[in-house]
């Protein structure tokens, strides 16, 4: 475990797993509708490196959520498969989820919310839960209820909860889209800092181009049933959204993003 940009207080015990890689192979999905079959996408192939941060972009209705649900195992693909590789070679991966709305249980304290998902974790102690709340800057809120927190703080609990199960892959579904811009910006910076500390593979779904470029190593664009854009982000970190390189790359990415509109 490396710690070149140490800001958040981390602990050896917080990351025992290595990051996993994601392999999406020949993936196709169709839904049965009243009019017949509706093809969401087909023949999708993506390989995501361990410890990388990948953003999946797409307009509403492009099938982003369907893709995420298949990766997380909630939906079955019509064809193809999603395979994970882990350092121990087992392919047995733990997935951490962060949702658009935090989905916290209002009757449980923040600490209890974290404890809730550690059902099968024999190493879980209250200390582990507290460490993860510390990690997202909520040291003073262990025993508070979600209803007593701001929207940003609630989403922090959501992130702490996802990290607490020590996942090899973190799946994030537009986690900041319900927050105001200032809070979202703050959380993005913290997420990047956590990611570089903890070395998780992150699969992040969003429709916000600036957010995606700020966060990701690689942008995937989904539309018309295929991955039509796949860009490496060549920017150094930390990234400034008002720098010339950023704006130039952003323009290029936006051009790519809209390239399917002209057809």
């Amino acid at each position: 475990m490396s710690s070149e940009t140490s800001q958040a207080p981390t602990d050896e015990s917080l990351t025992s797993n290595n990051a996993g890689s994601i392999h999406i192979e020949n993936l196709a999905k169709e839904f049965d509708t009243a009019e017949g079959h509706e093809q969401v996408f087909e023949d999708i192939n993506i390989d995501i490196e361990p410890e990388s941060f990948v953003c999946l972009l797409g307009k509403s209705g492009s099938g982003k959520s369907t893709m995420l649900n298949i990766v997380s195992g909630i939906l079955e693909p019509t064809e193809g498969q999603v395979r994970f590789e882990t350092a121990d070679g087992s392919g047995d991966v733990t997935l951490g989820h962060v949702f658009q709305s935090p989905r916290l249980m209002p009757w449980d304290s923040n600490l209890q919310n974290i404890e809730f998902v550690n059902e099968d974790n024999p190493d879980y102690t209250e200390e582990v839960g507290k460490q993860h709340l510390d990690l997202v800057g909520l040291s003073d809120h262990y025993h508070k209820y979600p209803g007593q927190l701001s929207g940003g703080q609630r989403q922090r609990v959501g992130i702490a909860r996802a990290l607490s199960i020590d996942p090899e892959v973190l799946l994030m579904d537009e986690p900041f889209s319900n927050l105001d811009e200032i809070t979202a910006e703050e959380l993005r910076k913290e997420l990047i800092s956590l990611w570089s500390e903890l070395n998780k593979t992150v699969f992040f779904v969003t429709h916000d181009m600036t957010e995606a470029i700020q966060l990701a190593d690689r942008l995937l664009m989904l539309g018309d049933g295929e991955i039509y854009g796949d860009l490496e982000v060549p920017l150094e970190r930390p990234r400034r959204i008002d720098s010339d390189e950023f704006l130039k790359f952003r323009q290029k990415a936006i051009d790519t993003f809209h390239s399917i509109d002209e057809d």
């Binding site: 909630i74 949702f99 709305s101 809730f116 998902v117």
Partner: peptide
């Protein structure tokens, strides 16, 4: 239902979902 989906995503057992959610 969002909480049930959350519990499903984290593969929580039915028993625990019943008692805790």
């Amino acid at each position: 239902h969002d909480l049930l989906r959350m519990a499903n995503a984290f593969s929580i057992s039915r028993r625990r979902v019943l008692w805790r959610v």
